[in-house]
Design a protein around this nucleic acid. Structure first.
Lengths: 339, 339
DNA sequence: CTGAAAGCGCTTACAG
DNA sequence: CTGAAAGCGCTTACAG
């Protein structure tokens, strides 16, 4: 079987304590001993047992990821890819704590973390109601939330600049000549939904445009809701000539509704999405959208956790990444200006 | 802090051995003692420490997932969602072993598994060259490969019916009236690529159609390669009137090339994809495609691992899930029959 | 049916 | 600079 620390100690002619010390970078080991031990470690292909380490030391070198949302969404995949980068750089392994699968009433996140000695966790959740956040905060297990403004002594969050992203989209549309710009927003009771609405109003204000309730509709992240929302906007006495959507999927639904109404994108109505998922490039016309830096969000989340783990006093992080408007094929000047 | 087994024993007035026994379902414990212990366990919210269990017993209740392919691909997300179901049902936790991030030369999968006491692993890999499969097989760590026909004493695989899926697509097209049916295949040196080519030829044979090399082009799973492959097919003296693609992304690329050539889908050329990713529904016209049951593939992989872990003699599994042709908007009878 | 004891593979004071 | 010893929280023969 695989060698253990005793085998190494024996082969090197030292005690297990000494082997442990060179493995853990203690400086109180002579250069000669260190080299000897390291050589044996290599020869025997020795890897310390993580369970034993975890049991005796405080470190399990395990981070967890908890999902209150489906993982089939590409948004998740991209963030996870970013997390991997951070994980590797800091030497952690990642464990799936749960998702819908454990989403039953009996599931207890904190207990699960303790059982596995999880040192910190990344939480994907869009609303404060979806889980028992208080219990997590009280547990003092370092936590980083994605897209949810949770703050506690050992909990923080990272997100995109939702206000700025939507604001920029509105101003871009205004720059194209649009004066009736609609919004298909997230549910207003979510963190990002609230901020995006703020960004919308501030974009309107910057453009000197009035805010009208009838140009705002709400939906979730689905194509279907985007479709329904757009139908509502289209039913107004003076429908918007451009619409900003809070997700790429919602934008696709909006385009469905526009097309169904016998209008075309971008000639009759301009559409902007949010996220810049892969599908934004695949769709025809390719979707103009507000890009989120999902890779960086994931990577930074892990780095923040590492900081919190190493420093009990590390202040609750609140990191906001800038967004970027990606111009593609779904925006054009309003028709009235063209003809 | 959290209670340990000694606290439970003390509170219940029994030994830790007894507590351990009731926790592990030993039948040699009196009903009375068992109830008493279970009551305390509940009161103290006791959860046994996984590291200690793993250290002493052989079981870590940890399965790993190893990716030689990117995890941003929706195919991965869907399989993972299926795995979750199996994980929950059998009581395992899932650890990310690695992906590109650890993909450096020094990374050693088997060593990593030993370090973390991983009991079994699911491997995503499309080619035998991408990793050191021999070492994994020799390690005798139970392994299930997705879409790769690896077999060993402790290694098996699960996949879709690639032959049947493509064959059905060809016959469907033939049923529509097509007689020149092209294939945009995977790289022929992959397991699935080989089988899909077999399915293509057998579909042709069943339809009484001849096989011609010039109606087959190869690519990977990308839209770009699908585009290039379709351009090749279009350049033939008598281009196909229908084409089956081995991925949804490839199908999108093929449609790009067809559109660019001034032709339309499905009026001029019919297109069928493979996978049935979410984008197949999002695209306009919606993509007719061969659906893979990704959820079942993921779930079964975990179940197979569990069987192998419990039974040293469990025969190497080779599970093939049926595919399903999903009719949507990219297929129609050939033009010559219409006009 | 129950418990004392050994031991899983490490790390960390502590003594030398 | 090095090593003996205790101990992390469990499980598993073994004795009773």
């Amino acid at each position: 079987m695989a060698a253990n620390i005793r085998d190494v100690a024996k082969a090197a002619g030292v005690s297990v304590a000494t082997v442990s010390k060179v493995l853990n970078g203690y400086t109180t080991v002579s250069q000669k001993t260190k080299e000897k031990v390291l050589g044996i470690v290599r020869d025997l292909d020795f890897q310390p047992n993580a369970a034993a380490r975890s049991l005796v030391g405080q470190r399990s070198m395990t981070l967890g990821v908890y999902l209150t949302t489906g993982l089939t969404h590409p948004f998740f995949s991209n963030i996870l890819a970013g997390m991997e980068q951070g994980l590797k750089a800091r030497g952690y392994d990642l464990i799936y704590l749960a998702q819908l699968s454990y989403g039953s009433k009996e599931y207890n996140l904190v207990r699960h973390c303790r059982t596995r000695n999880v040192e910190g966790i990344v939480v994907f959740g869009f609303s404060h109601e979806e889980m028992n956040i208080e219990e997590l905060i009280e547990s003092r297990i370092p936590s980083v939330f994605i897209d949810l403004d949770v703050k506690g002594p050992r909990a923080g969050y990272v997100s995109s600049d939702n206000v700025g992203g939507i604001e920029q989209a509105v101003r871009y549309l205004h720059g194209l000549g649009h004066t009736r710009i609609g919004l298909i927003s997230d549910l207003p009771d979510t963190y990002v939904g609230r901020l995006r609405l703020v960004g919308y109003r501030s974009g309107l204000r910057a453009a000197g445009l009035p805010y009208a309730e009838e140009t705002v509709a709400f939906g979730d992240y689905s194509r279907e809701q985007g479709y329904e929302a757009m139908r509502k906007l289209l039913a107004a006495s003076r429908p918007p000539t451009a619409v900003v959507c809070c997700s790429d999927y919602g934008a696709l639904g909006a385009i469905d509704a526009i097309t169904e109404a016998g209008l075309s994108v971008p000639n009759d109505i301009s559409v902007i999405g949010f996220d810049d998922l892969e599908l934004a490039r695949n769709v025809r016309p390719a979707l103009t959208t507000v890009r989120q830096d999902m890779l960086s969000i994931g990577k930074r989340s892990v780095e923040l956790l590492d900081e919190m783990i190493h420093d009990d006093e590390y202040p609750a992080p609140a990191v906001i990444f800038p967004t970027e408007l990606i111009e593609r094929g779904t925006c054009a000047p309003p028709k009235t200006l063209n003809s």
